[in-house]
C-alpha cells in the first residue's frame, strides 16, 4: 500500500447551539461526526450527499477555513506527515498553504471584483512572498496558458466582470494550482456553470490532475458529475460516511439503502430508461444531539428496530473488497 496523501481520522465538527450568552452550550449540531477516509497521490475522491450532510464542512476543515473540533487530518508533505488540524508553527502553516488549495463553487463570488486576474492568480505567491515580481508574472502567464486562457497577456489584466463564468472558473483553477499544491479541495466547482462549459472545465481539472499528480477531494451533489470526475466516491448522510467504494462499483452495486435511494432518484437523460422506485421515508432530520442509533434509521426502508434502533450508528466496514458500508443489515460478501 502506498502512502496516502491525505488521511482523515475520526474527523469531527460540532457547532454549539447557544441558548444564552452566559450559559455554555449543552446542545451541539454534529455537522461532521467522526469520518475516516484516505486519498492517494493523484487520486480523486468524490464526496456526495444532499445539502446539509456535512460535505462542505468537511472540505472547509481540510483547507483550514473551519476549525476542527475532533480527530485529525494527516497530510503527506515531501516525505513528512503534518497533522493539519494542529498546526502551530508558522513555517508549517506556510507549507500547508502551498500544499493544499481550494476551488470554490461560485465563480462570480470567489473573485474580488476590484482585483485583476493577475492579482487573483498571483495572490498565493504575493501573500506568501514567493518569487520576484517578474517570476510571478511569468508563472501567472504560464498558468493562464495551462488553463486555456490564451493569449495570456490579453487575460492577465482583466477584471472578473469582463470574463464569462467558465473563464472565471478557469482563473480559480489557475489560482489554486499556482503554488504547485499536492491536494486540492474542489467544492462544487461546476455546479454554477452551464452544461456545455461544465464539461470543458471538468476535462481541464482531470487533465491537470493527471499531469501534475494532484489529488482532489471533489465535493458535489451531482452523482453524474462525481462519476465523471472521481476514482472513488464517498456518500455522506447527516455527518457520517455511509458508503465508500470505487466509482463504478458504488454506482453499479450500491449496498447502503441510502445510496440506493439516492441513485434511484437521479434523473437520467434518456426517456426510455425506467428508474427503480426511490425507497426512502420522510424528510431529512436535524443533526442536533443525534440519538444513539443509525442516523438513517427514521428514513430507512429496511431498518430493523431490534438491530438498527438499539445500537449506535454502524461503523464503516469493508463489506466487499474496497467497498465500505456503514450498515448492520448489509452482509459481508466473500472477496
Amino acid at each position: 500500500m502506498t502512502e496516502a496523501r491525505v488521511e482523515v481520522k475520526d474527523l469531527e465538527k460540532r457547532y454549539p447551539v447557544q441558548k444564552s450568552v452566559f450559559r455554555s452550550a449543552k446542545d451541539f449540531i454534529h455537522a461532521v461526526d467522526g469520518i475516516n477516509f484516505r486519498i492517494d497521490p493523484g487520486e480523486s475522491l468524490g464526496l456526495v450527499g444532499e445539502s446539509g450532510c456535512g460535505k462542505t464542512t468537511t472540505g472547509r476543515m481540510l483547507v483550514k477555513l473551519l476549525e476542527v473540533t475532533g480527530g485529525e487530518v494527516l497530510l503527506q508533505d515531501s516525505g513528512e506527515v503534518i497533522d493539519i488540524s494542529h498546526i502551530t508553527d508558522k513555517d508549517d502553516l506556510k507549507r500547508f498553504r502551498s500544499d493544499v488549495q481550494m476551488i470554490f463553487q461560485d465563480p462570480f463570488e470567489s473573485m474580488n471584483p476590484r482585483r485583476t486576474v493577475y492579482d487573483t492568480i498571483a495572490e498565493p505567491l504575493t501573500v506568501q512572498r514567493i518569487g520576484t515580481v517578474p517570476d510571478r508574472e511569468a508563472k501567472v502567464a504560464e498558468l493562464l496558458n495551462l488553463v486555456g486562457l490564451t493569449p495570456a497577456e490579453s487575460f492577465m489584466f482583466r477584471f472578473p466582470h469582463e470574463l464569462s463564468g467558465g473563464q472565471r472558473q478557469r482563473v480559480a483553477i489557475a489560482r489554486a494550482l499556482i503554488v504547485d499544491p499536492t491536494f486540492v479541495v474542489a467544492d462544487e466547482p461546476t455546479s454554477m456553470l452551464d452544461v456545455s462549459i461544465r464539461i470543458s472545465v471538468m476535462d481541464l481539472m482531470l487533465k491537470l490532475a493527471d499531469r501534475l499528480n494532484v489529488s482532489y477531494l471533489y465535493i458535489t451533489h451531482d452523482l453524474a458529475v462525481a462519476r465523471y470526475m472521481c476514482d472513488r466516491i464517498a456518500v455522506m448522510y447527516l455527518g457520517k460516511i455511509v458508503e465508500l467504494a470505487d466509482t463504478e462499483d458504488l454506482l453499479g452495486h450500491p449496498m447502503h439503502p441510502y445510496t440506493r435511494a439516492l441513485l434511484s432518484a437521479v434523473p437520467v437523460p434518456d426517456p426510455s430508461y425506467q428508474r427503480p422506485p426511490v425507497e426512502i421515508k420522510g424528510g431529512i432530520s436535524k443533526s442536533i444531539n443525534p440519538e444513539p442509533r443509525c442516523r438513517f434509521y427514521d428514513r430507512c426502508p429496511i431498518a430493523r428496530e431490534d438491530i438498527c434502533g438499539v445500537q449506535d450508528h454502524p461503523p464503516l466496514e469493508e463489506k466487499a473488497p474496497n467497498h465500505w458500508v456503514a450498515c448492520y443489515l448489509v452482509d459481508k460478501q466473500p472477496a
Binding site: V195, I197, R198, P269
Partner: peptide
C-alpha cells in the same frame, strides 16, 4: 452536442464531448 456533454449515472462511462466557445 448538449446531449453528448451531459454526464449520466447509467450507461457506459464515456468521454464527454465539450462544446467549445461561448453563447
Amino acid at each position: 452536442l448538449l446531449l453528448s456533454s451531459t454526464p449520466s449515472i447509467v450507461g457506459p462511462r464515456r468521454k464527454l464531448a465539450p462544446l467549445e466557445g461561448e453563447p
